[in-house]
Design a binder for these strands. Structure first.
Length: 168
DNA sequence: CTCGGGATGCGT
DNA sequence: CGCATCCCGAGG
């Protein structure tokens, strides 16, 4: 699954020439319209347009009126799947906490103006790094209790023992 | 545990 | 149009 492959990679956001970098330590997979916890289960709407778009783009949305969440579209166009970045370990030029999806967006300076951004571009991207050895834990996703059987699926992945995971 | 906060999608 | 709901975080 693509979600685990993001663990250990770096998220880079360039702000006024400064690279803000965090190492991905926690993610959740959202599998498509059949996944009742996924935004795409509402179908193709203005909000979910990017999620149904081509892979390698950022899906950024506002939640609870005040926090942003950063996702990576992972599957081919039309599929409607994405991976939510839930926690980072600070690497460079990070100020503020990064142990949660809203917090890490704040620390990186990511907001909805980056919705749809091409992650192969220059401003916001995922950087592969030398694979440090780590083990992966799998758990149910956070905050999706409404999603019936899908709430119990083990689609949350994090680096075992990492101090920056949101709720170990 | 509570509660803020605003967009969204859906029913009317 | 109204309104319940939401992939959260801070504070008690």
């Amino acid at each position: 699954m693509v979600a685990q492959e993001l663990l250990g990679k770096h998220v880079v956001h360039v702000v006024r020439g400064i690279e803000r970098v965090g190492r991905i330590v926690e993610v959740e997979a959202y599998l498509g319209p059949h996944d009742r916890a996924a935004h795409s289960c509402k179908g193709l709407t203005p909000r979910t347009r990017v999620m149904f778009g081509p892979p390698g783009h950022a899906y950024v949305y506002l939640i609870y009126g005040m926090h942003h969440c950063l996702n990576v579209v992972t599957e081919p166009e039309g599929h409607g799947s994405a991976v939510l970045i839930r926690a980072l370990e600070p690497v460079s030029n990070i100020s503020g906490k990064t142990c949660g999806p809203g917090l890490l967006c704040k620390a990186l300076g990511v907001d909805r103006t980056l919705n749809g951004a091409d992650l192969l571009g220059e401003q916001l991207y995922i950087a592969d790094v030398n694979a440090e050895d780590f083990r992966i834990n799998r758990r149910p996703r956070i905050g999706v209790d409404y999603a019936g059987a899908w709430a119990r699926r083990l689609l949350r992945f994090y680096i075992r023992g990492n101090a920056h995971v949101s709720s170990p």
